[in-house]
Design a protein around this nucleic acid. Structure first.
Lengths: 358, 358
DNA sequence: TACCTCGTTGCATACGTATGCAACGTAAGC
DNA sequence: GCTTACGTTGCATACGTATGCAACGAGGTA
């Protein structure tokens, strides 16, 4: 019995070298792909390494190579299932490239400055900003420091930072057309974070589509992408003297909450009394209890594009901003009255694709 | 225009030292709390650091201090909202202690060995294993290496690794008593991962409680904590010739799926045709569409205990296994027929607390 | 045999920071 | 004024790895 309180210092490359009867360089070369090393010594080193339980020290390696193989992922909140899904996919894709995630979450959105400070201290090779914004000073600082930054599912005013998004404006427009074609005549919108690009674009497209049909009156409340605030917004909207026939909720996470309020607090039947449409096509929207018509944001391709941009910029050293915009699809479900035309079935899902060319 | 392709090398402590007219040591001491440094030089250094945009290099610091201030968090999947919630709370608690999370997710549970290899290379100061298991060899290896490991929401056969759990057996027992007291006479159970301690304990307690009332016949199917598999399990259970009056689903994540299947595929009314109870008290269980009776797992206290154990072991160097077991509470909702006694209201929630002393 | 080539190896150094040690200056005590 | 004590400071070194450079040896050619 050793009491279990022992604390062994890790094996170093020098110890392996001595044990194998070679130089420390040889050990280093053994674990550096592409380095000049003969199969014979390589085998000796590997044997010694295995015997001693040696693992290269990634920290020490980073110090000399200036590459930490760490990507900072910043997600202020994970309440919306969309983001955990993204996180999981990021885990897969980044580990395939032999990169790792330093995750920053659980802070208030405005407190991103200390987070940024921490993240810079670890000399991360790249930064993914998912559910938070970044002041333009900080973005500039990253650019100067040569650290690639990708905004995930958001953009900045000027296009100075790389981003991956979907066609939010088009998605909003499509939802507008869909609801108009479905025969609705009064409309509501429950907004996400006021200053977020997704909210701005989705609403912009939605409003454009309605205006094209002469509709300019939209009852708007704000849910800030939070369940609780969306509930409050729904209560206000549904209590209006002239209740909207259709409501576009800026994302599914809030749409689920809105549907709960409509049904259980106002006793409404969906879609007879009220049509609801959302955005993201996230888990709960697909559950039969909700079954919400929604525009997809394809997580797989979005994450792939994000990682591609990062890898490209890391390897090339060029940090010219790149912008990837992926298409979305309007998935038709039972939460809204349906148009008579334009709905096609693809892969067992009903999709809205109106005829017109635009 | 500089073309935006510049790649500046970060400022070092030596550069700050030169700029401030002091030694590199002085700079280091300025950024090391508790080091011997006069207010005057400290001010000089801080001014120079600010001017140059200096940030201490955490990598280099780790190399010499043997402390990375990084905690590895291993969560194979995030599908169950319980885990994102945990992650967010971990973010808060760890950053308060000035630690950071290296997150490993998105891999198959059995592929944990390469994950472990990666994580060891970064010389993390601690490991939190949340939604994955760890082979006992690996646990032993950590113990030898002196790295604190805490199992979150799971335990191992022998108690050789620290853990934080809730009273799962008691929770299962309570749910059993609750359903029996509610007048149900036939029972089903939809299991989680077969080899997980939570599944074993919850079911063990449940069976004990039923046996105490002479009930030994429980229809069991396995959902492996996955929504899809839970749906399949529900279909089997609900299609039985003698359908159970009450089903205990091993966690809420699956219980939601089961309820969807019961209502939308079998046309059952909850709780008239079927009573459902779950575990975790996770988000969707609280939504009015589901409103599932469930036993809480208090995320805040659980995460707090986890971080406490880690900090204790990191600072003391002792890695004697510690086990923290927190209480849960049975929250009564509308997904099940209710017992006539034992339900009390606390903080606006209905809680089941039967009279008997045990 | 002499020369060149090329793959392999070790030596020495560098990465950016923390820290033991000795030297220094200042203030307190007599 | 001298001694002692103590708070500051800089020097030098160490952490574990990667890599340029020179040296070495084997194999091929003339």
């Amino acid at each position: 019995m050793d009491g279990g309180i022992t604390k062994k210092t890790p094996v170093t490359s020098s110890q392996v070298a001595e044990h194998a009867g070679v130089s420390q360089s040889a050990v280093s070369r053994t674990f550096t792909p592409g380095a000049s090393i003969s199969p014979k010594t390589r085998a000796k080193v590997l044997a010694a390494a295995k015997e001693l339980g040696y693992r290269p020290n990634a920290i020490a390696r980073s110090l000399i190579t200036n590459r930490s193989r760490i990507i900072a992922v910043v997600m202020a909140y994970l309440e919306n299932l969309f983001y955990p899904d993204v996180l999981e996919e990021l885990g897969r894709r980044l580990s395939a490239e032999n990169y790792h995630m330093l995750l920053f979450t659980g802070f208030k959105d405005r407190d991103s400055d200390p987070v940024f400070d921490q993240l810079m201290q670890y000399r991360v090779d790249g930064i993914i900003l998912a559910s938070t914004s970044l002041s333009s000073e900080l973005a500039a600082e990253c650019a100067v420091a040569g650290i690639p930054v990708v905004l995930f599912n958001r953009t900045t005013e000027r296009d100075e930072t790389s981003s991956v998004t979907t066609r939010n404006r088009e998605g909003g427009r499509l939802l507008g057309e869909f609801l108009v074609a479905g025969g609705h005549r009064s409309f509501g919108y429950i907004a996400g974070l006021e200053n977020s690009s997704t909210n701005r674009d989705r609403f912009g497209g939605f409003r454009e589509a309605l205006e094209a049909h002469g509709i300019t009156d939209i009852a708007v409340r704000t849910g800030n992408y939070s369940r609780l605030e969306a509930e409050a917004a729904a209560r206000e909207l549904l209590a209006l003297p002239r209740r909207p026939e259709a409501i576009f909720v800026a994302n599914d996470h809030m749409a689920v909450a809105v549907m709960d309020v409509a049904r259980h607090e106002f006793g409404l039947t969906i879609p007879d009394d009220l049509s609801l449409v959302g955005y993201d096509d996230v888990g709960p929207a697909r559950w039969p209890s909700y079954d919400i018509t929604s525009v997809t944001q394809p997580i797989g391709p979005m994450v792939e594009a994000t990682v591609d941009i990062l890898m490209d910029q890391i390897h090339s050293g060029e940090i010219e901003p790149q912008h990837k915009i992926l298409p979305g699809e309007l998935i038709v479900r039972s939460s809204s009255r349906l148009p008579r035309t334009g709905i096609v079935e693809i892969d067992g899902q009903r999709v809205y694709r109106p005829e017109r060319a635009t």
